[in-house]
Amino acid sequence: MHSTSPPANDGLPARASEWLVALADHPEDETLRAGLQRWLAASPANRRDWEEMSALWQGLGEIGTLAGEDRGTTRERLPARRVRRRALGAAAGLAVALGLAFAWGPDLLLRLEADQVTATAEVRSLVLDDGSRVELAPRSAVAVDFSARERRLRLLQGRAFFVVAAGDRRPFIVATRGAEARDIGTAFDVATADDATEVAVREGIVEVTRPGAPGAAELRAGDWVRIERSGATGRGQVEAESVGAWRRGRLMVENRPVAAVVDALRPYFPGTVVLVGDRLARQPLTGAYTLSDPVGALRAVASAQGASVHRVSPWLIVIAGD
């Protein structure tokens, strides 16, 4: 049984997500509303967290201004039961939608185009007709197009690690929407996203080209290149042994934007991860994270940047910063 109102003391909520739930439970409680106003006034960070979380909550289902603030508009004051029902209905709707999305996995067109597709947190090892090996990361998809002239694979989504079999004279090519990696007897990692393709070499040599652009980037052990859809490129070096570390359950990053690190962790979390704040997204990050604990890894990423983490539901995490 719930009490008619929460305690007006140290038992008051301490985080924006907790305030939202408490107010949905007790929308008429003036003591609770007064406590929220004191909490908002206590620090700019509290107010920022509240604004971000309330915007997200209202986006799931219009439930009025729970804080009771005057924002220049007139809203009908809903009975407590209706407010609570809308809040729960919005949350339930989100849970059902996310559940259906991840039950079906990648969209049907991707499945029709791909030869192999992996689910959340699934790593799959493949042996190709020529003896080459492919390790497909979670939420990834690849199509194999071998012919008499070349061994071509299309990485349609996600990430894969390739160990190319020697002795076959046909070129071994991995293509994404933004680049092509041509193997010269090697082991290498390729990742693709909407905005860029990344290639890193563990051993041997790989030539990376961008369709329509002259020249090729030659990568050797420990080299990596990032080719953005805009045409911008970046290059660097890492320890060769760290290339493909995700296959051993570790994500190792060096001076990478927070947005890129969160993108790499998303396939291991069975739900949605929302990153709020352009400045936070651009911040450089170096670290090693355990992929078997994606929630812990996301909390570590946020902690390193002084950002906040809100576990809105088992299927939704919001990381918020400046």
Rank of each mutant, 00 (worst) to 15 (best):
M1W: 06
D10A: 06
L20Y: 08
A22W: 15
A24R: 06
D29M: 11
D29S: 14
E30S: 14
E30A: 15
L32T: 13
A34D: 14
N46R: 09
D49Q: 14
W50D: 06
E52W: 00
M53Q: 13
L56H: 15
G61F: 07
T65K: 05
L66W: 10
E69W: 12
R71C: 11
R71Y: 14
T73P: 00
T73G: 05
E76T: 15
L78T: 10
V83K: 03
V83T: 15
R86M: 12
V96E: 08
V96K: 03
L100E: 15
F102E: 13
P106V: 13
L112M: 13
A114L: 15
A114N: 14
A114K: 10
V117E: 13
A121T: 12
E122R: 09
E122Q: 15
V123Q: 15
D129V: 09
R133C: 11
S140R: 03
L153M: 10
R154I: 02
L155F: 09
F161C: 00
V163N: 08
V164M: 03
G167R: 02
G167D: 00
R169V: 12
R170Q: 05
G178H: 14
A181I: 07
I184Y: 10
I184H: 10
G185K: 04
G185C: 09
T192S: 11
D194N: 04
D195T: 10
E198D: 06
V199Q: 01
R202V: 03
G204N: 03
A213P: 00
P214K: 01
P214D: 13
A217P: 00
S230N: 02
G234R: 04
A240Y: 06
E241R: 00
A245P: 00
W246Q: 02
R248F: 05
V253M: 07
E254N: 08
N255M: 07
D263I: 06
L265S: 07
R266G: 11
F269C: 03
R279H: 12
A288W: 05
A288Y: 03
A297R: 02
Q305H: 13
A307M: 07
V309H: 10
H310Y: 11
R311L: 14
S313F: 10
P314H: 08
W315H: 06
